[in-house]
Design a binder for these strands. Structure first.
Length: 503
RNA sequence: GCCGCUAUCGUCUAGGGGUCAGGACACGUGGUUCUCAGCCACGGGACCGGGGUUCGAAUCCCCGUAGCGGUACCA
């Protein structure tokens, strides 16, 4: 089995295309097949090298490694269409010689006029066949006289073209609605329908899995396979991914490119797991489906994936569900990995200037507090901002904090707290011991005790576990000044500053 | 316009001639921890419309409707 993903490098990798790549990858990996990456850059105006690189980067980040491609080579190369021009030319000549194609000298203006007339008359707009019967000798003469021409495919008239789609079944088109389409443009570059067929055939692709938007191109391609004498591959057309308003997913709907999700702190396994479930669901293993059946690592997705289980209808991209999956995978990821991923967000927030060992291991120790209550890694620094920035006066102004202060005994607890803390609360036990001493002094317990302690030490009325957060404050406060970390006020200094502000 | 594809809770979906139409996300209520979150329990919520076939249709067929795609010297 040989499958391919063939993006055109004209922009960022979109989640819809990423899903197409994923389904190809899943099928290849699950069947010991070969996954090929081909760059369709025949549109020279819009294709950029930079875009190609970013697509490759995004695919790697997603974990969709390819076996053959522009950077790794392989027996079917080259893998950029711009480097395969000689192949297209040679097959175009073959088609010309066999009478399956002909030169067309129609100026663009005439083509446009024809189309307008068809539309106005309610006819399907298609090429009028003006140049269909120009004798080859005449064509050659005009070519030699430097007349511009395209090469068109001679579409057989009045026949039905049926192909089998693995996800949809048999699909039939009548060639009456298909005009003689362009194979080679006047500048010598191949058009899409021609290049794909040559490439898929030469690269011996067995399964063409692509977006539904290609379904009406397929009969043209089938015709080409026939004319060229190639055996057509199996086709599978995937439904599209839509936005909440049921229009194709676009920038209007927020983040749509893989790199945006990467930048915002989504984990690749969350994105791939989520994308796999749009339009595909694991075959229910008889009876009830386990609630966790949707959470699957890549290997399991690959093992269970089957084209036969792919749905027919378009799916709406749901950021909420993606967020849920991301939370799940963040909890599963190792703190070291998360710290490495998060460092840039701490840097952006000004909490970390350099990635020193001390700074990084401090951040690592913080993550378990934040990761359970955040959708994306990007939000982690905000969640932990109270550690790095402490302003007693500002905290007092916050309604939620003020509310806590109105609780009976709150001021007492705060006063006792500022007197009780005499050193760093290096761990949970030290924190508990301190809390007990405040409890003895004030007689307060439960919420009445912990709420005031929380607002005094963190400036927040809610947040990560208190007896985890407070030791973290003191650990940060004790780190050497060159740790790269923003300065952290110790819990003792916080308690005193807050007590003073309250008074 | 013409051609094609599609249609189950708000969303992703399972199922498929007789089911209490199942699950997940989201949502609501209650419980739980010093807190947001989390977690646990419970709850509301769907077969596009109309015909036909059938003892029986969400399921099969037809016709509508709607959405999407194509109708390029874009891919």
């Amino acid at each position: 089995m040989r499958v391919r993903f063939a993006p055109s490098p004209t922009g960022q990798l979109h989640v819809g295309n990423a899903r197409t790549a994923l389904f190809n990858w899943l099928l290849a990996r699950g069947h010991d097949g070969t996954f090929i990456l081909r760059i369709e850059d025949t549109d020279a105006e819009r294709s950029t090298k930079q875009s190609e690189e970013s697509i490759l980067d995004d695919l790697r980040w997603l974990g969709l490694e390819w076996d053959e491609g522009p950077d790794v080579g392989g027996g079917g190369g080259p893998y950029r269409q711009s480097e395969r021009l000689h192949l297209y030319t040679s097959y175009a000549n073959e088609l010309l010689a066999g009478g399956h194609a002909y030169y067309c000298f129609c100026p663009p203006q005439k083509l446009e006029d024809d189309r307008r007339k068809d539309l106005a008359a309610g006819r399907p707009p298609k090429y009028h066949g003006t140049c269909r019967s120009i004798p080859p000798e005449d064509a050659r003469r005009r070519l030699e006289a430097n007349e511009r021409a395209v090469i068109r495919f001679r579409v057989p008239e009045h026949i039905e073209v049926t192909f089998h789609d693995v996800v949809r079944g048999d699909v039939t088109f009548n060639t009456d609605v298909i005009g003689d389409f362009v194979l080679v443009r006047s500048d010598g570059r191949p058009a899409y329908n021609f290049a794909v067929v040559i490439d898929d055939a030469l690269m011996e692709i067995t399964h063409v899995i692509r977006g539904e938007d290609h379904i009406s191109n397929t009969p043209r391609q089938v015709l080409l396979y026939r004319a060229l004498g190639f055996a057509p591959p199996r086709f599978a057309h995937l439904s599209l991914v839509l936005g909440p308003d049921h229009t194709p997913l676009s920038k209007r709907h927020g983040a749509t490119s893989v790199s945006e999700f990467r930048e915002r702190g989504y984990l690749p396994e969350a994105l791939t797991n989520y994308l796999a479930l749009i339009g595909w669901s694991p075959r229910s293993s008889g009876g009830e489906v386990d609630g966790d059946a949707e959470l699957m690592p890549m290997e399991e997705l690959a093992r269970r994936f089957a084209l036969e289980d792919v749905g027919h209808s378009a799916g709406v991209f749901d950021p909420e569900k993606l967020a849920w999956m991301n939370r799940h995978y963040m909890k599963e990821a190792s703190p070291a990995r998360l710290a490495a991923e998060c460092a840039r967000f701490f840097q952006a927030r000004g909490f970390l200037s350099r990635k020193t060992d001390a700074g990084m291991s401090y951040i690592e120790s913080l993550l378990p507090m934040a990761v359970g209550s955040v959708d994306r890694l990007e939000e982690v620094p905000d969640r932990l901002a109270f550690l790095f920035a402490y302003d007693a006066a500002q905290a007092l102004e916050r309604p939620a904090v003020a509310e806590v202060l109105h609780e009976p005994g709150a001021r007492e607890v705060i006063a006792a707290l500022s007197e009780t803390i005499d050193g760093p609360l290096a761990d949970r036990n030290a924190f508990r011991a301190m809390a007990n001493r405040v409890k003895e002094k004030t007689g307060q317990k439960g919420k009445a005790l912990f709420h005031p302690i929380r607002v005094a030490l963190t400036g927040e009325s809610g947040g990560p576990e208190l007896d985890l957060a407070v030791p973290a404050i003191d650990r940060g406060a004790q780190l050497p000044g060159d740790s790269g970390l923003a300065k952290i006020l110790s819990s003792r200094d916080r308690a005193r500053a807050f007590a003073a502000a309250v008074r």
